[in-house]
Amino acid sequence: MSADFLYGVEVVLNGLMAGVLYALVALGFVLIYKASGIFNYAQGVMALFAALTLVGIMDGQVPFGHLINAIFGTDLHGFGWTVPAFAAILLTILVMILFAWCVHTFVFRHLVGQPPIILFMATIGLAYFLEGVGDLMWGSDIKTLDVGLPQGASLWIEDSTAFLGGDGFYGFFIDRLDVAATLVAAVLVAALVLFSQYTKQGRAMRAVADDHQAALSVGISLNFIWWLVWSLAGFVALVAGIMWGAKSGVQFSLSLIALKALPVLMLGGFTSIPGAIVGGLIIGVGEQLFEYLVGPSIGGATENWFAYVLALAFLVVRPQGLFGERIIERV
């Protein structure tokens, strides 16, 4: 096989791995949107907040330390302990569940039945509020996150695939962190699908997504389900935050991963779980291939916009998304 072809394959592999993560972030949006009609602008900030909280807990940072120091003239920095990654992740999950409860109880519970644009505005408010809370709680400096995921190129993959090509090919260059992230994301996506298909709560979630009145009439508490979907979205945000944070540090730009999910949603539809998965893969592969094949001849940096162009083109042809049902207006 020619080396060019094999490098193309490598690009596709990397694209698929990025795509799984995009799918994961997109799922966070889909969960909330399906169950409550809320397009959650704060999803990216939730990922940032979750990652900050995780780092803070692991490093034994005192929450709101700066604030406390400023008010009481103390000089607190840390508790002086560190927490193992696994325990810290569990604690962060609890924090995200509590966060979900607060968001629902103090904000969206009071906005039930409001038009979608109002709900959307509320999530914008939530995003900036949460960003501020994150800063206050954990400080705004750039942090590194190391939960023990493998890092760096996998020599094993490189060596064991080198034979595929000829002289010009040295094997697939694949980052072990990407592999780990892909595996985790794939497992999580599968778990979410199974959860929504086969558990009582999953069934209730789908019921609420379909018809509120009918859901109530069979004994489903809407408030509980809304809390549940915000919690799940918080969990998804945490996982995405860990993956991105491990790769490029925990800082404000982490919240921009939400922007990666938008084209995925445009492609896959806002209400379809399979749509988010397939959409994520298409965007992941599409943008990497485009950058590889066309990027060099037009100056590169196409990842920033290509996904949107792809999604936009797709939207024009199929406004309902990949798996959405075609809406035919009744007259």
């Binding site: 959860f195 009582k200 709560q201 209730a204 019921a207 018809d211 009918a214 009439s217 069979v218």
Partner: peptide, 30 residues
Amino acid sequence: RTFQNIALFDGMSVLDNVMTGRITHMKRGI
């Protein structure tokens, strides 16, 4: 109950719809 203007889960199969009627009988959680 049923509703005057039918409130079903349109996206689900008949079987899944009827299954949601059992939710109050499903004790075991996540």
